[in-house]
């Protein structure tokens, strides 16, 4: 295996006195889709936020592309090539789709034109809605916009926080297909946090299971899908 693009080493994160992450370690190799599954409150979103330095890890290291980014300010980390599509989509509701996308390219200061072309190829629906207010989009379209907005920064690592949240199964399948296409065609590395373990593990090359701030299992997507613990806890038994 080549050198990891992202390495998280024994990271602990606290909210006040509450330890949300208790020494989490994981790696993501270039070109991989890695998924992190777990129940509500397991610390999945906290891990993604910690990678971006908000909140900051109290112990452990976050290493991106050989560089220690644990102490870097958030905007520097994002400029360095990590983009996040936050939980709950969080598009800017009163700004147009076009303006939302421009916001994605803003902090890195790159020319938005090639990024716009790329995301419109990936999500033609957004092209149709370009002049529309983001708040008037459907949930699925808003999710596409949130991912597209993150892609505008031309990241090397894309962090996706629950892209299927609150979406109809058909729509979430479309989103997952788009992620797969993106990974296959551009080799973009993806770290995906999901509650929808079944779809996420099918999509991912590898996966980790997070339980109350600790990694309890890891393996390839197929391995994890076959594990009885995973089946019982996250796939509804049977």
């Amino acid at each position: 295996m080549s050198a990891p693009l992202l390495e998280i080493r024994d990271v602990s994160t606290f909210y006040g006195a509450v330890e949300a992450l208790k020494g989490v370690s994981l790696t993501v190799a270039p070109g991989e889709i890695v998924t992190l599954i777990g129940a509500n409150g397991a610390g999945k979103s906290t891990l993604l936020m910690t990678i971006c330095g908000d909140p900051r890890a109290r112990a452990g290291r976050v290493i991106f592309d050989g560089q220690d980014i644990t102490e870097q300010p958030t905007h520097r980390i994002v400029r360095g090539g990590i983009a996040q599509s936050p939980e709950g989509r969080r598009v800017f509701p009163r700004m147009s789709v076009h303006e939302n996308l421009l916001m994605g390219a803003q902090s890195s200061g790159i020319n938005p034109a090639p990024g716009l072309e790329q995301v419109f190829t990936l999500f033609p629906r957004l092209k149709e809605r370009e002049a529309q207010r983001a708040g008037t989009l459907s949930g699925g379209e808003q999710q596409m916009l949130a991912i597209a907005r993150a892609l505008m920064a031309q990241p090397r690592l894309l962090l996706l926080d629950e892209p299927s949240l609150g979406l109809a199964p058909l729509v979430s399948r479309q989103i997952f297909q788009a992620i797969r296409r993106l990974n296959a065609e551009t080799g973009l590395t993806v770290l995906l946090v999901e509650q929808n373990a079944n779809q996420a593990l099918r999509l991912a090359h590898r996966g980790y299971v997070l339980v109350t701030g600790r990694i309890t299992l890891s393996g390839t997507g197929r391995e994890l899908l076959a594990r009885p613990e995973v089946r019982d806890a996250y796939l509804g038994g049977h």
């Binding site: 905007h75 994002v78 598009v91 509701p93 009163r94 916001m103 803003q106 902090s107």
Partner: peptide, 22 residues
Amino acid sequence: PLGRAWEAMREDEIACRSLGIN
């Protein structure tokens, strides 16, 4: 970009952070 960042911050500050807006 600055004015757009103001408006985006008014809409959603957390989203702005996640996009690396200072």
